[in-house]
Design a binder for these strands. Structure first.
Lengths: 230, 230
DNA sequence: TCGGACTAAATTGTCAACAATCACGTAGGA
DNA sequence: TCCTACGTGATTGTTGACAATTTAGTCCGA
Protein backbone atom coordinates (compact mmCIF):
# COMPACT_ATOMS: atom_id res chain seq x y z
CA UNK A 1 0.00 0.00 0.00
CA UNK A 2 1.34 3.35 -0.99
CA UNK A 3 -0.12 6.15 1.04
CA UNK A 4 0.67 8.74 -1.55
CA UNK A 5 -1.90 7.16 -3.81
CA UNK A 6 -4.76 7.21 -1.33
CA UNK A 7 -7.19 8.76 -3.73
CA UNK A 8 -6.02 7.22 -6.97
CA UNK A 9 -9.36 5.56 -7.41
CA UNK A 10 -10.75 6.12 -10.87
CA UNK A 11 -13.34 8.71 -11.54
CA UNK A 12 -16.85 7.51 -11.96
CA UNK A 13 -17.95 9.54 -14.93
CA UNK A 14 -21.32 8.00 -15.66
CA UNK A 15 -23.39 10.69 -13.95
CA UNK A 16 -23.75 8.23 -11.12
CA UNK A 17 -23.40 9.63 -7.64
CA UNK A 18 -19.87 8.87 -6.39
CA UNK A 19 -19.56 6.56 -3.42
CA UNK A 20 -18.93 8.05 -0.01
CA UNK A 21 -15.54 6.38 0.31
CA UNK A 22 -14.58 7.68 -3.10
CA UNK A 23 -15.35 11.26 -2.13
CA UNK A 24 -13.50 10.82 1.14
CA UNK A 25 -10.45 9.54 -0.68
CA UNK A 26 -10.48 12.47 -3.07
CA UNK A 27 -10.74 15.01 -0.27
CA UNK A 28 -7.92 13.30 1.62
CA UNK A 29 -5.81 13.47 -1.51
CA UNK A 30 -6.61 17.16 -2.00
CA UNK A 31 -5.57 17.86 1.56
CA UNK A 32 -2.42 15.87 1.09
CA UNK A 33 -1.50 17.72 -2.08
CA UNK A 34 -2.20 21.04 -0.47
CA UNK A 35 -5.03 21.88 -2.86
CA UNK A 36 -6.96 22.32 0.34
CA UNK A 37 -4.57 24.31 2.51
CA UNK A 38 -4.39 24.09 6.32
CA UNK A 39 -6.99 26.33 7.91
CA UNK A 40 -9.03 26.53 4.71
CA UNK A 41 -12.74 26.16 5.29
CA UNK A 42 -14.59 23.50 3.35
CA UNK A 43 -18.00 24.95 2.58
CA UNK A 44 -20.71 22.33 2.36
CA UNK A 45 -22.19 23.86 -0.77
CA UNK A 46 -18.82 23.72 -2.52
CA UNK A 47 -18.28 20.09 -1.54
CA UNK A 48 -21.76 19.26 -2.79
CA UNK A 49 -21.07 20.85 -6.16
CA UNK A 50 -17.49 19.69 -6.48
CA UNK A 51 -18.22 16.04 -5.86
CA UNK A 52 -21.81 15.81 -7.03
CA UNK A 53 -23.39 14.50 -3.87
CA UNK A 54 -26.28 15.62 -1.64
CA UNK A 55 -25.68 17.81 1.36
CA UNK A 56 -26.56 15.17 3.89
CA UNK A 57 -23.98 12.88 2.36
CA UNK A 58 -21.46 15.69 2.22
CA UNK A 59 -21.92 16.43 5.90
CA UNK A 60 -21.38 12.79 6.79
CA UNK A 61 -18.23 12.62 4.72
CA UNK A 62 -16.88 15.72 6.41
CA UNK A 63 -17.70 14.39 9.87
CA UNK A 64 -15.88 11.17 9.08
CA UNK A 65 -12.82 13.13 8.02
CA UNK A 66 -13.04 15.10 11.25
CA UNK A 67 -12.96 11.80 13.11
CA UNK A 68 -9.92 10.71 11.15
CA UNK A 69 -8.14 13.92 12.00
CA UNK A 70 -7.93 15.48 8.56
CA UNK A 71 -10.37 18.26 9.39
CA UNK A 72 -11.28 20.41 12.37
CA UNK A 73 -14.89 21.07 13.28
CA UNK A 74 -16.40 24.08 15.00
CA UNK A 75 -20.04 24.38 15.98
CA UNK A 76 -22.04 26.48 13.53
CA UNK A 77 -18.91 27.22 11.57
CA UNK A 78 -18.36 24.00 9.74
CA UNK A 79 -15.05 22.31 9.04
CA UNK A 80 -11.64 23.44 7.95
CA UNK A 81 -8.44 21.66 7.07
CA UNK A 82 -6.59 20.86 10.23
CA UNK A 83 -4.05 23.46 11.22
CA UNK A 84 -0.74 22.80 12.85
CA UNK A 85 0.55 24.66 15.86
CA UNK A 86 4.19 24.62 16.86
CA UNK A 87 3.40 22.41 19.84
CA UNK A 88 1.26 20.16 17.66
CA UNK A 89 4.13 19.69 15.25
CA UNK A 90 6.41 18.75 18.11
CA UNK A 91 3.87 16.32 19.55
CA UNK A 92 3.35 14.69 16.18
CA UNK A 93 7.06 14.50 15.62
CA UNK A 94 7.73 12.54 18.79
CA UNK A 95 4.99 10.04 18.05
CA UNK A 96 6.10 9.74 14.45
CA UNK A 97 9.61 8.99 15.63
CA UNK A 98 8.60 5.85 17.47
CA UNK A 99 6.06 4.71 14.88
CA UNK A 100 8.49 5.02 11.99
CA UNK A 101 11.02 3.29 14.20
CA UNK A 102 8.60 0.46 14.75
CA UNK A 103 8.01 0.22 11.01
CA UNK A 104 11.72 -0.26 10.47
CA UNK A 105 11.85 -2.87 13.25
CA UNK A 106 8.92 -4.83 11.85
CA UNK A 107 10.37 -4.64 8.36
CA UNK A 108 13.72 -5.92 9.59
CA UNK A 109 12.05 -8.77 11.44
CA UNK A 110 10.49 -10.02 8.24
CA UNK A 111 12.34 -12.11 5.72
CA UNK A 112 12.61 -10.01 2.61
CA UNK A 113 11.71 -11.47 -0.74
CA UNK A 114 14.33 -11.17 -3.45
CA UNK A 115 12.18 -8.59 -5.14
CA UNK A 116 11.94 -6.51 -1.98
CA UNK A 117 15.70 -6.71 -1.47
CA UNK A 118 16.42 -5.47 -4.96
CA UNK A 119 13.74 -2.75 -4.77
CA UNK A 120 15.29 -1.48 -1.56
CA UNK A 121 18.79 -1.62 -3.03
CA UNK A 122 17.63 0.22 -6.13
CA UNK A 123 16.00 3.00 -4.15
CA UNK A 124 19.13 3.35 -2.02
CA UNK A 125 21.29 3.52 -5.16
CA UNK A 126 19.03 6.19 -6.59
CA UNK A 127 19.30 8.23 -3.40
CA UNK A 128 23.09 7.83 -3.42
CA UNK A 129 23.23 9.08 -7.00
CA UNK A 130 20.90 11.98 -6.28
CA UNK A 131 23.00 12.97 -3.27
CA UNK A 132 26.14 12.87 -5.37
CA UNK A 133 24.54 15.03 -8.06
CA UNK A 134 22.72 17.33 -5.60
CA UNK A 135 19.47 16.48 -7.34
CA UNK A 136 16.94 17.42 -4.66
CA UNK A 137 13.85 16.50 -6.62
CA UNK A 138 14.97 12.98 -7.44
CA UNK A 139 16.11 12.56 -3.87
CA UNK A 140 12.77 13.71 -2.48
CA UNK A 141 10.92 11.28 -4.70
CA UNK A 142 13.15 8.34 -3.84
CA UNK A 143 12.92 9.33 -0.20
CA UNK A 144 9.16 8.90 -0.32
CA UNK A 145 9.41 5.50 -1.95
CA UNK A 146 11.99 4.49 0.63
CA UNK A 147 9.77 5.27 3.60
CA UNK A 148 6.70 3.85 1.89
CA UNK A 149 8.46 0.60 1.12
CA UNK A 150 9.45 0.14 4.75
CA UNK A 151 5.89 0.74 5.95
CA UNK A 152 4.58 -1.64 3.31
CA UNK A 153 6.99 -4.38 4.26
CA UNK A 154 6.25 -3.83 7.96
CA UNK A 155 2.74 -5.01 7.11
CA UNK A 156 0.87 -3.67 10.13
CA UNK A 157 -2.47 -2.12 9.26
CA UNK A 158 -2.72 -0.07 12.46
CA UNK A 159 0.72 1.38 11.94
CA UNK A 160 0.02 2.15 8.29
CA UNK A 161 -3.11 4.10 9.03
CA UNK A 162 -1.75 6.03 12.00
CA UNK A 163 1.37 7.00 10.14
CA UNK A 164 -0.67 8.20 7.18
CA UNK A 165 -2.60 10.58 9.40
CA UNK A 166 0.51 11.71 11.26
CA UNK A 167 2.20 12.54 8.00
CA UNK A 168 -0.59 14.67 6.55
CA UNK A 169 -0.12 17.98 8.37
CA UNK A 170 3.64 18.05 7.96
CA UNK A 171 3.81 16.81 4.41
CA UNK A 172 3.63 20.25 2.82
CA UNK A 173 6.34 21.65 5.02
CA UNK A 174 8.56 18.67 4.34
CA UNK A 175 7.95 19.17 0.66
CA UNK A 176 9.08 22.77 0.63
CA UNK A 177 11.97 21.89 2.85
CA UNK A 178 13.07 19.00 0.69
CA UNK A 179 14.44 21.40 -1.90
CA UNK A 180 17.02 22.49 0.60
CA UNK A 181 20.01 20.43 -0.43
CA UNK A 182 21.91 21.32 2.71
CA UNK A 183 20.76 18.31 4.73
CA UNK A 184 20.82 15.82 1.87
CA UNK A 185 24.19 14.31 2.73
CA UNK A 186 23.27 13.77 6.35
CA UNK A 187 19.88 12.36 5.47
CA UNK A 188 21.31 9.93 2.99
CA UNK A 189 23.85 8.68 5.52
CA UNK A 190 20.87 7.90 7.76
CA UNK A 191 19.21 6.08 4.89
CA UNK A 192 22.28 4.01 4.26
CA UNK A 193 22.41 2.93 7.88
CA UNK A 194 18.74 1.99 7.79
CA UNK A 195 19.06 0.12 4.52
CA UNK A 196 22.02 -1.83 5.83
CA UNK A 197 20.21 -2.80 9.01
CA UNK A 198 17.17 -3.88 7.03
CA UNK A 199 19.21 -6.04 4.67
CA UNK A 200 21.04 -7.51 7.66
CA UNK A 201 17.73 -8.26 9.35
CA UNK A 202 18.98 -6.39 12.43
CA UNK A 203 15.76 -5.14 14.00
CA UNK A 204 17.37 -3.26 16.88
CA UNK A 205 19.73 -1.39 14.58
CA UNK A 206 16.97 -0.67 12.07
CA UNK A 207 14.69 0.82 14.71
CA UNK A 208 17.46 2.85 16.31
CA UNK A 209 18.67 4.21 12.98
CA UNK A 210 15.18 5.13 11.88
CA UNK A 211 14.40 6.87 15.13
CA UNK A 212 17.58 8.91 14.91
CA UNK A 213 16.72 9.77 11.35
CA UNK A 214 13.20 10.92 12.10
CA UNK A 215 14.32 12.81 15.19
CA UNK A 216 16.84 14.80 13.18
CA UNK A 217 14.18 15.46 10.56
CA UNK A 218 11.85 16.74 13.24
CA UNK A 219 14.47 19.13 14.52
CA UNK A 220 15.02 20.53 11.04
CA UNK A 221 11.28 20.73 10.53
CA UNK A 222 10.63 22.77 13.64
CA UNK A 223 13.54 25.07 12.87
CA UNK A 224 12.31 25.50 9.31
CA UNK A 225 8.76 26.22 10.43
CA UNK A 226 10.01 28.73 12.97
CA UNK A 227 11.90 30.58 10.25
CA UNK A 228 8.77 30.62 8.13
CA UNK A 229 6.25 31.66 10.74
CA UNK A 230 8.33 33.27 13.45
CA UNK B 1 -6.89 13.74 31.51
CA UNK B 2 -8.18 10.35 32.47
CA UNK B 3 -9.32 8.34 29.53
CA UNK B 4 -11.52 6.10 31.59
CA UNK B 5 -13.76 9.04 32.27
CA UNK B 6 -14.28 10.02 28.66
CA UNK B 7 -18.02 10.31 28.95
CA UNK B 8 -18.34 11.62 32.45
CA UNK B 9 -19.99 14.77 31.15
CA UNK B 10 -23.15 15.52 33.03
CA UNK B 11 -26.53 14.70 31.64
CA UNK B 12 -28.48 17.57 30.22
CA UNK B 13 -31.91 16.86 31.57
CA UNK B 14 -33.73 19.97 30.48
CA UNK B 15 -35.44 18.45 27.50
CA UNK B 16 -32.81 20.19 25.41
CA UNK B 17 -31.21 18.21 22.64
CA UNK B 18 -27.81 16.92 23.84
CA UNK B 19 -24.78 18.25 22.04
CA UNK B 20 -23.15 16.11 19.41
CA UNK B 21 -19.92 15.80 21.36
CA UNK B 22 -21.88 14.77 24.42
CA UNK B 23 -23.57 11.94 22.57
CA UNK B 24 -20.28 10.86 21.06
CA UNK B 25 -18.68 10.75 24.48
CA UNK B 26 -21.50 8.64 25.86
CA UNK B 27 -21.32 6.16 23.01
CA UNK B 28 -17.55 5.91 23.40
CA UNK B 29 -18.04 5.24 27.07
CA UNK B 30 -20.64 2.56 26.36
CA UNK B 31 -18.24 0.87 23.97
CA UNK B 32 -15.47 1.12 26.48
CA UNK B 33 -17.57 -0.42 29.22
CA UNK B 34 -18.75 -3.19 26.96
CA UNK B 35 -22.38 -2.13 27.14
CA UNK B 36 -22.05 -2.08 23.39
CA UNK B 37 -20.22 -5.32 22.64
CA UNK B 38 -17.82 -5.82 19.72
CA UNK B 39 -19.73 -6.70 16.57
CA UNK B 40 -22.99 -5.35 17.95
CA UNK B 41 -24.94 -3.30 15.44
CA UNK B 42 -25.95 0.21 16.43
CA UNK B 43 -29.36 0.78 14.85
CA UNK B 44 -29.97 4.42 13.95
CA UNK B 45 -33.47 4.36 15.37
CA UNK B 46 -32.19 3.08 18.71
CA UNK B 47 -29.50 5.75 18.87
CA UNK B 48 -32.10 8.40 18.07
CA UNK B 49 -34.36 7.22 20.88
CA UNK B 50 -31.60 6.48 23.37
CA UNK B 51 -29.93 9.86 23.11
CA UNK B 52 -32.84 12.03 22.05
CA UNK B 53 -31.39 13.46 18.86
CA UNK B 54 -32.57 13.58 15.25
CA UNK B 55 -31.60 10.95 12.76
CA UNK B 56 -29.41 13.22 10.68
CA UNK B 57 -27.45 14.12 13.75
CA UNK B 58 -27.27 10.50 14.81
CA UNK B 59 -25.87 9.50 11.44
CA UNK B 60 -23.21 12.18 11.67
CA UNK B 61 -22.24 11.09 15.16
CA UNK B 62 -21.91 7.50 14.02
CA UNK B 63 -19.84 8.47 10.99
CA UNK B 64 -17.52 10.45 13.23
CA UNK B 65 -17.05 7.44 15.47
CA UNK B 66 -16.33 5.34 12.41
CA UNK B 67 -13.60 7.82 11.52
CA UNK B 68 -12.18 7.59 15.01
CA UNK B 69 -12.08 3.82 14.79
CA UNK B 70 -14.67 2.95 17.42
CA UNK B 71 -17.18 1.63 14.88
CA UNK B 72 -17.12 -0.23 11.58
CA UNK B 73 -19.30 0.83 8.70
CA UNK B 74 -20.78 -1.26 5.92
CA UNK B 75 -22.78 0.12 3.03
CA UNK B 76 -26.53 -0.29 3.48
CA UNK B 77 -25.91 -2.18 6.69
CA UNK B 78 -25.04 0.58 9.06
CA UNK B 79 -22.44 0.53 11.79
CA UNK B 80 -21.35 -1.93 14.42
CA UNK B 81 -18.86 -1.85 17.26
CA UNK B 82 -15.45 -2.58 15.88
CA UNK B 83 -14.47 -6.21 16.12
CA UNK B 84 -11.03 -7.51 16.82
CA UNK B 85 -9.34 -10.24 14.83
CA UNK B 86 -6.36 -12.14 16.11
CA UNK B 87 -4.09 -10.37 13.65
CA UNK B 88 -5.66 -7.04 14.54
CA UNK B 89 -4.91 -7.62 18.20
CA UNK B 90 -1.30 -8.40 17.36
CA UNK B 91 -0.97 -5.32 15.16
CA UNK B 92 -2.45 -3.10 17.85
CA UNK B 93 -0.21 -4.66 20.45
CA UNK B 94 2.98 -3.84 18.63
CA UNK B 95 1.96 -0.23 18.07
CA UNK B 96 0.79 0.08 21.64
CA UNK B 97 4.13 -1.18 22.83
CA UNK B 98 6.06 1.70 21.31
CA UNK B 99 3.46 4.35 22.12
CA UNK B 100 3.27 3.40 25.78
CA UNK B 101 7.04 3.25 25.74
CA UNK B 102 7.14 6.78 24.40
CA UNK B 103 4.72 7.91 27.09
CA UNK B 104 7.11 6.58 29.72
CA UNK B 105 10.04 8.29 28.03
CA UNK B 106 8.27 11.64 27.81
CA UNK B 107 7.15 11.37 31.40
CA UNK B 108 10.68 10.61 32.54
CA UNK B 109 12.03 13.57 30.57
CA UNK B 110 9.79 15.92 32.47
CA UNK B 111 10.60 17.25 35.89
CA UNK B 112 7.97 15.82 38.21
CA UNK B 113 6.17 18.09 40.62
CA UNK B 114 6.20 17.02 44.25
CA UNK B 115 2.55 16.14 43.92
CA UNK B 116 3.18 13.93 40.90
CA UNK B 117 6.04 12.18 42.67
CA UNK B 118 3.92 11.36 45.66
CA UNK B 119 0.95 10.30 43.53
CA UNK B 120 3.17 7.93 41.64
CA UNK B 121 4.71 6.59 44.83
CA UNK B 122 1.27 6.09 46.36
CA UNK B 123 -0.01 4.16 43.36
CA UNK B 124 3.09 1.99 43.39
CA UNK B 125 2.64 1.32 47.10
CA UNK B 126 -0.97 0.38 46.51
CA UNK B 127 0.04 -2.05 43.79
CA UNK B 128 2.72 -3.54 46.03
CA UNK B 129 0.18 -4.07 48.77
CA UNK B 130 -2.37 -5.56 46.37
CA UNK B 131 0.23 -7.91 44.99
CA UNK B 132 1.17 -9.00 48.50
CA UNK B 133 -2.46 -9.65 49.38
CA UNK B 134 -3.39 -11.14 45.98
CA UNK B 135 -6.12 -8.51 45.66
CA UNK B 136 -6.72 -8.57 41.92
CA UNK B 137 -9.42 -5.93 41.87
CA UNK B 138 -7.43 -3.33 43.75
CA UNK B 139 -4.44 -4.13 41.62
CA UNK B 140 -6.42 -3.72 38.40
CA UNK B 141 -7.71 -0.36 39.53
CA UNK B 142 -4.31 0.92 40.59
CA UNK B 143 -2.87 -0.42 37.37
CA UNK B 144 -5.21 1.81 35.39
CA UNK B 145 -4.34 4.84 37.41
CA UNK B 146 -0.66 4.02 36.97
CA UNK B 147 -0.82 3.94 33.19
CA UNK B 148 -3.13 6.95 33.05
CA UNK B 149 -0.82 9.01 35.23
CA UNK B 150 2.12 8.31 32.95
CA UNK B 151 0.17 9.33 29.87
CA UNK B 152 -1.04 12.44 31.62
CA UNK B 153 2.43 13.46 32.71
CA UNK B 154 3.79 12.73 29.22
CA UNK B 155 1.54 15.59 28.10
CA UNK B 156 1.41 14.85 24.39
CA UNK B 157 -2.05 15.28 22.89
CA UNK B 158 -1.38 13.12 19.84
CA UNK B 159 -0.12 10.30 22.00
CA UNK B 160 -3.04 10.58 24.39
CA UNK B 161 -5.65 10.31 21.66
CA UNK B 162 -3.98 7.50 19.74
CA UNK B 163 -3.46 5.47 22.86
CA UNK B 164 -7.07 5.92 23.87
CA UNK B 165 -8.24 4.45 20.58
CA UNK B 166 -5.68 1.65 20.67
CA UNK B 167 -6.84 0.65 24.12
CA UNK B 168 -10.54 0.43 23.32
CA UNK B 169 -10.81 -2.92 21.58
CA UNK B 170 -8.61 -4.75 24.04
CA UNK B 171 -9.91 -3.19 27.21
CA UNK B 172 -12.62 -5.78 27.80
CA UNK B 173 -10.24 -8.67 27.35
CA UNK B 174 -7.73 -7.08 29.68
CA UNK B 175 -10.46 -6.58 32.21
CA UNK B 176 -11.51 -10.23 32.28
CA UNK B 177 -7.89 -11.25 32.30
CA UNK B 178 -7.00 -8.93 35.14
CA UNK B 179 -8.72 -11.21 37.62
CA UNK B 180 -6.12 -13.81 36.92
CA UNK B 181 -3.73 -13.33 39.80
CA UNK B 182 -1.12 -15.54 38.20
CA UNK B 183 0.76 -12.78 36.42
CA UNK B 184 0.36 -10.18 39.14
CA UNK B 185 3.80 -10.66 40.63
CA UNK B 186 5.53 -10.37 37.29
CA UNK B 187 3.47 -7.36 36.29
CA UNK B 188 4.19 -5.54 39.52
CA UNK B 189 7.91 -6.14 39.15
CA UNK B 190 7.60 -4.40 35.78
CA UNK B 191 5.76 -1.56 37.43
CA UNK B 192 8.45 -1.17 40.05
CA UNK B 193 11.12 -0.93 37.39
CA UNK B 194 9.10 1.68 35.51
CA UNK B 195 8.36 3.69 38.64
CA UNK B 196 12.03 3.69 39.62
CA UNK B 197 13.11 4.86 36.18
CA UNK B 198 10.49 7.61 36.23
CA UNK B 199 11.54 8.87 39.65
CA UNK B 200 15.18 8.73 38.54
CA UNK B 201 14.33 10.71 35.43
CA UNK B 202 16.00 7.98 33.36
CA UNK B 203 14.17 8.21 30.04
CA UNK B 204 15.96 5.33 28.32
CA UNK B 205 15.30 2.97 31.21
CA UNK B 206 11.68 4.10 31.52
CA UNK B 207 10.96 3.51 27.85
CA UNK B 208 12.72 0.15 27.81
CA UNK B 209 10.95 -1.05 30.94
CA UNK B 210 7.56 0.05 29.68
CA UNK B 211 8.07 -1.60 26.32
CA UNK B 212 9.05 -4.87 27.97
CA UNK B 213 6.02 -4.59 30.22
CA UNK B 214 3.57 -3.98 27.40
CA UNK B 215 5.16 -6.67 25.23
CA UNK B 216 4.70 -9.26 27.97
CA UNK B 217 1.14 -8.09 28.44
CA UNK B 218 0.49 -8.50 24.73
CA UNK B 219 1.79 -12.04 24.80
CA UNK B 220 -0.53 -12.93 27.69
CA UNK B 221 -3.38 -11.18 25.92
CA UNK B 222 -3.03 -13.15 22.71
CA UNK B 223 -2.67 -16.39 24.61
CA UNK B 224 -5.73 -15.57 26.68
CA UNK B 225 -7.78 -14.62 23.64
CA UNK B 226 -6.75 -17.83 21.90
CA UNK B 227 -7.97 -19.87 24.86
CA UNK B 228 -11.26 -17.99 24.74
CA UNK B 229 -11.95 -18.10 21.04
CA UNK B 230 -9.83 -20.95 19.79
C1' DT C 1 -37.05 -32.13 4.13
C1' DC C 2 -34.95 -28.87 1.37
C1' DG C 3 -34.53 -24.86 -1.34
C1' DG C 4 -36.24 -21.01 -4.05
C1' DA C 5 -39.42 -17.26 -4.81
C1' DC C 6 -42.20 -14.06 -2.86
C1' DT C 7 -43.95 -10.68 0.68
C1' DA C 8 -43.63 -7.55 4.61
C1' DA C 9 -41.11 -5.35 8.02
C1' DA C 10 -37.04 -3.19 9.40
C1' DT C 11 -33.31 -0.43 8.33
C1' DT C 12 -30.47 2.56 5.78
C1' DG C 13 -29.94 6.07 1.90
C1' DT C 14 -31.31 10.44 -0.12
C1' DC C 15 -33.31 14.71 -0.78
C1' DA C 16 -35.51 19.16 -0.17
C1' DA C 17 -37.34 22.60 2.67
C1' DC C 18 -37.12 25.42 6.61
C1' DA C 19 -34.85 27.27 10.97
C1' DA C 20 -30.96 29.03 13.40
C1' DT C 21 -26.66 31.14 13.39
C1' DC C 22 -22.84 33.68 11.72
C1' DA C 23 -20.27 37.20 8.88
C1' DC C 24 -20.20 41.51 7.13
C1' DG C 25 -21.46 45.78 5.52
C1' DT C 26 -24.08 50.02 6.49
C1' DA C 27 -26.50 53.60 8.58
C1' DG C 28 -27.12 56.58 12.40
C1' DG C 29 -25.80 59.05 16.50
C1' DA C 30 -22.54 60.81 20.02
C1' DT D 1 -14.05 59.53 13.82
C1' DC D 2 -15.70 55.93 16.42
C1' DC D 3 -19.01 52.79 17.97
C1' DT D 4 -23.28 50.54 18.31
C1' DA D 5 -27.42 48.64 16.23
C1' DC D 6 -29.39 46.68 12.61
C1' DG D 7 -30.27 44.13 8.47
C1' DT D 8 -28.95 41.15 4.75
C1' DG D 9 -26.74 37.35 2.62
C1' DA D 10 -24.13 33.25 3.39
C1' DT D 11 -23.64 29.13 5.85
C1' DT D 12 -24.71 25.59 8.96
C1' DG D 13 -28.32 23.00 11.80
C1' DT D 14 -32.53 20.22 11.86
C1' DT D 15 -36.44 17.88 10.48
C1' DG D 16 -39.52 14.98 7.95
C1' DA D 17 -40.85 12.43 4.08
C1' DC D 18 -39.88 9.20 0.65
C1' DA D 19 -36.78 5.79 -1.93
C1' DA D 20 -33.74 1.86 -1.92
C1' DT D 21 -31.92 -2.00 0.29
C1' DT D 22 -31.56 -5.59 3.48
C1' DT D 23 -33.58 -8.94 6.59
C1' DA D 24 -36.70 -12.36 8.01
C1' DG D 25 -40.36 -15.10 7.52
C1' DT D 26 -43.69 -17.85 4.79
C1' DC D 27 -45.46 -20.39 1.31
C1' DC D 28 -45.06 -23.74 -2.12
C1' DG D 29 -43.25 -27.26 -5.12
C1' DA D 30 -39.72 -30.84 -6.07
Amino acid sequence: MNFYSIAMTKEIDTGESPTVSNVMARIRQHIFEGIYAPGQRLIEKDVVEEYGIGRGRAREVLKSLVGEGYLEFEENRGVRVRRLTRQGAIDIGRVREVIEGLAARLAAERTFTDEERSTLANIQAEMDRATEERDAETFAHANRRFHDLIVEVADNSVLTKQLEILRVPIFRIQFQQSFTTASMGERNKDHQRITQALLDGDADAAEAAMRDHVRRGNARLVEFADRLFG
